[in-house]
Amino acid sequence: MRPGVPRWVLVPAALGAAFVLLPLVAIIARVPWTDVGTLIGSDASRDALSLSLRTSAASTVLCVVLGVPMAVVLARTSFPGQRVLRSLVLLPLVLPPVVGGLALLYTFGRRGLLGETLEVLGVQVAFSTAAVVMAQTFVALPFLVVSLEGALRTAGERYELVAATLGARPTTVFRRVTLPLVLPGLASGAVLAFARALGEFGATVTFAGSLQGVTRTMPTQIYLLRETDADGAVALSLALVVVAVLVIGVAHRGRPGGAL
């Protein structure tokens, strides 16, 4: 039997739930159901949705490739300045996305820190789909690092130590012990990162621009549509919400017994 929670907790919990759910109800009440099909089926919307899914998937992969090693280094090693480094790496969490976009622009833009180097290499990031993926990765990466680092610390180092004393090399320990142990944490981190990438707007418009099929993701399309057709924007947001829930649901079901 569970010990239960103090009853008074239910009041703020219910208030909190209402605060999140009421706006969702309000937005569903505004959806022009008769036009939903045409709105979502339009070329612009389908391009935006497909671009959003492709770029978010790509940035989630990038987040995993870069974020897992980052989390491992932060959780399993100690070096001078580690705390400062951790705070700095998590900066995109608090940075307004628009400012994040500017920061990316100052780094990878034509006149940015690496701009000249990229130009020599013949790479132009501006106004490309790659810029969208970069913006999404920038804002989503901390989510993966934070949740995975937490999982690593909770899992502890006992099994890793045992494996090491039995003669396993660091790479083997990492592959056979560490990763399997934190797989649920990694999965929820990846889902969080994907969700954040899907909703990313500010950094994308600032850094990548907005052109149908190239850089105009769902959030940008929704924001633009709102200029002329607020109801249409609402319908499109609903489509984004449904897609996000579906994707997260599938990812969730893929992990037996795992809780987000």
Binding site: L105, G109, R110, R111, A126, F127, V205, T206, G209, S210, L211, Q212, T215, R216, T220, Y223, L224, E227
Partner: peptide
């Protein structure tokens, strides 16, 4: 054939002042 169709005139100006466009 613009490379980007921005949300507002401020966004367009931002792309020009930063030298991206």
């Amino acid at each position: 054939s613009p490379v980007s169709e921005e949300q507002s005139v401020t966004d367009v100006l931002g792309k020009v002042t930063s030298g991206e466009a």
